[in-house]
Amino acid sequence: MFLVPVFFGITLLVFSIERLAGDPVQLYTALNPHINEAQRQLLRQSLHLDQPIHIQYLSWLSDLLSLNLGFSYSGGSVAVLISQRLWATLELQLIGLTLSLIIAIPIGILSARKRYSVLDVTITSSSLVGTSIPIFFLGVAAILIFGYNLHWFPSGGFQSSDPSRYLYHNLLLDQAWHLFLPATVYTFAILAPVVLLVRSSMLEVLRQDYILAGRASGLSERSVMYKHGLRNALIPIVTYVGLYFGGLLAGAPVTETVFNWPGVGKLFVDYTTQLDFPVIQAVVVIITLMTLVANLVTDVTYAYIDPRIRLE
């Protein structure tokens, strides 16, 4: 169980950054100029600031582990703030990830099958170009064209703020309408590296004799490519999805800021600007936890995919 020390290491890091940033009470006062001395005293006690630093850390950690995320400096409950935003983040991330896999896998396989052909060179070079296009460029361009200029889609947000302006007076349709542009842009932004990964992984597999043997046994091309080829090429792809799920989540601040998407990433940006540490810490810890869980799921998936790993 290597995950546990990693997790504690990161909590320690997050905690130190806060304490290095200065007196939490001062940070708090900066956001709430009108509080009195008694309230400050109360805050000092609740953060155990009168005790040595390791006690402060331990009490902070125990609060965290008992899911007592506390209150932000600006007043809201951190748990409520995050839970309100988490769904929007996951919705965008999961849809983008799923769509990009659905699109990238057949393209990558095609490219590997026809390698060195004009098609392969076209796919490979446009994917290389694609990996270089940042989402803030793609996103801003898409908003300018399809939002401001053509008015096909809203320029941002999760849903219309005024219920009377819902698309066809239906909340779900309105949300889908808002989701379309961010999801499309996000899908394309993460598509290219997956195509390259599927291609190189498939090239490795297609070299193997069982692919040749499958073809020579008269199996259909689809069976050779998907049942035997893709299944064996899956390990690096699962690793990518698992390892970078955390990375993708951490990239949420940019995506969500571009589309004004009310997710955890946007929340993080807004509260980091204020140095509102209870929120910052909670988000970092939650995203780390999700990364660790994703790694765990990856390992379990390996064993499902490959019987050789199952044995160990």
Partner: peptide, 17 residues
């Protein structure tokens, strides 16, 4: 069916999964 093939390398002639 009519023409069958036995590939070269027995270590990779069968799909490992």
């Amino acid at each position: 069916k009519d023409i069958a093939y036995v590939p070269q390398d027995p270590t990779s002639t069968l799909d490992p999964v």
